[in-house]
Design a binder for these strands. Structure first.
Lengths: 346, 346
DNA sequence: AACAGCTCCGAAAACGTTTTCGTGTTGAAA
DNA sequence: TTTCAACACGAAAACGTTTTCGGAGCTGTT
């Protein structure tokens, strides 16, 4: 139960001043080699480590970055965190994570809490409710205070700051393009309501891909899930009365549910219907059939976001450097849920 | 770009002393109602919020708890974090998360980093490598400094502190018991190497259940996965030469792979072989067939861990209160991968 | 003997709080 | 008029650092 060594204690013990100890430990030339070595030896022996809080107060820098996101029990977000954590750690930063649970109020509270000195900057993906409300005062506030913010995935266009996003529209387009290439003509989309930025973009990609393939859009083939909790039932219901040969789902949960729905109708995947999803998580990889999907490279997103933030933090000089929006390319991972059909074509 | 209001600035602006401002904001009776109201109005108007770092330094409390765990892209750990975060937030604490990626060195580094003032206490699940090395000096060190530590899931018996664990052995026993009840006799286990504490316990549960059912143990039916990356191949290989009617896997990834392996052999789940896993994640729920599993209630584990830690933090008085080990009951969730077999029995 | 120039070290301020203790000003009681 | 309590406020220390500045003591040059 020894309560952490401080400079003051070392100073008292060695009968020198606090300043001397501090300087000795930082290898200042002001201190004679004798005392310097003595002090360093003592510090090492008793394992002195400077107090982070005191340093933060002095430097007005915490070397911590705040992450705020809607949820964590979700392969994509977990992967992003992992990416952030990796580069943050490499560059000597800590990450402090707050969950909004998609609640606007909690998002605001968390940001206010962290903004009062706890972090140097933010990496965040806004809550669904926030996108719906379109109230972003908490964002503008921290930005006005001079804290850098990097938005990722669920971003908001009105806020000017650095951003990292997927090429959601393009990814969706390629996914649907993949379906048309392997011969699908009756393609449904299972997506989210429009106020979720990424859902909207993926829907747009779907529409464009159909257009480019010369396939007319059928409104009945578009399912917008409102209540994620009940998505399974909604999807089952939706599929019941459809005649399809391809399905594009905007996440892996939806595509898994789609496969189940099709099986219940007596249809086989991919023989009768091809299914493609979004997000390359454990579910897509382990599923039977394994699911063709658009991989979002969450870890890379996280890394990039962290790098952009740290860049800002450590070069406050070029504060006027214009903000950038980095686009992480998605990639199509062909698996069993469409691959067999592709072979059939060839 | 207004750089955050401080007490000093308010004091200067209102021509009073810093102490007066501080007292007024904390509703001290020492301050006349006039000035008190004036100061509070001013503070509210310009949205004054005290600086957390300064408070931490003064109080020698950060109101942050450090979480260190092996990985985050894993439904169970994500769920635990979620549980911790929830109660931490409710009680006014922040969480700062560090990933060890199952590396001993990174675990040590992270803890040292956080121990220098960044957090008041720790919640952690030790890295696989740490369990292998059996080197726990970083744990004893922070404990000796008087920081409370709560270990969860992958714990270490030698360290005396609060702990939260699953009844892994009991859960495994019930899982295998479930298999025997529905008529399985040739039951394999797919588990981890023994130095992983939870893997070992689950293996023990398996053995006990067999014994109680009067089923002799067949060594060939025990598969211990060393390299998780290659688990799929190992499992495939393992299943190739087995004649089984039941499989118990210690996580959902293994059970999913097992189902695939069986299918490749032309066997159906659950008609030919029943499969039961551990951990109730998205994969088990969405899989086809949906996977019977032992649910670990990760969120509850997290909540309990956080509560125990905060308890210690806020009542340093009863420091001599003996340390407790809370056991979270697991529960069996019967799904398609065994349920059909159960019906067949009836 | 005077002075310059080193070398080595300590005092003090600063970061933003809270809190203890003192002190000046009232008004009323003696 | 003096004394005393109550009231309202400020000075200063403390938390643990870093850094600027100044100064003591010494050597060496004129």
């Amino acid at each position: 139960m020894k309560p952490k060594l401080t400079l003051k204690q070392i100073a008292r013990e060695l009968d020198v001043s606090i300043s001397t100890v501090s300087k000795a430990l930082r290898d200042s030339v002001e201190i004679s080699e004798d005392t310097r070595l003595k002090i360093k030896a003592f510090a090492k022996l008793y394992n002195y480590k400077p107090n982070n809080i005191a340093l933060s107060l002095k430097n007005r820098k915490t070397r911590t970055i705040g992450i705020v996101l809607p949820e964590i029990i979700h392969d994509f977000f977990a992967t992003v965190i992992s990416g952030i954590e990796q580069v943050a750690n490499k560059r000597g930063y800590n990450v402090i994570i707050c969950l909004s649970n998609n609640s606007f109020d909690k998002e605001v509270m968390n940001m206010e809490m962290l903004a009062n000195g706890s972090t140097d900057g933010f990496i965040l993906s806004v809550a669904k409710e926030t996108q719906q409300k379109q109230d972003y005062h908490h964002l503008t506030e921290v930005i006005n205070q001079g804290m850098p913010v990097v938005l990722f995935d669920r971003i908001v266009d009105e806020i000017i700051c650095d951003k990292v996003i997927n090429d959601d529209k393009e990814g969706a387009k390629r996914a649907v393009g993949h379906l048309t290439e392997i011969g699908c003509r009756k393609i449904a989309i299972i997506t989210t309501v429009d106020y979720v930025s990424v859902g909207k973009l993926r829907t747009e990609g779907y529409l464009e891909a159909l257009e480019e393939a010369g396939i007319p859009v059928v409104e009945e083939r578009i399912l917008k899930i409102e209540d994620v909790e009940n998505s399974e039932k909604e999807i089952m219901e939706f599929l019941k009365y459809q005649d399809l040969d391809g399905i594009f789902a905007v996440n892996e949960q939806f595509s898994a549910s789609a496969v189940r729905g099709l099986k219940e109708k007596g249809l086989e995947v991919p023989e009768d219907v091809s299914v493609i999803g979004f997000s390359d998580g454990e579910l897509s990889r382990k599923f039977i059939p394994s699911l063709t999907t658009v991989s979002q490279h969450g870890a890379e997103m996280g890394s990039r976001a962290a790098e952009m933030l740290i860049e800002r933090l450590e070069n406050p000089v070029d504060h006027d450097i214009s903000f950038r929006t980095e686009i992480i390319k998605t990639s199509l991972i062909a698996r069993e849920s469409t691959l067999a059909r592709l072979y059939a074509q060839i």
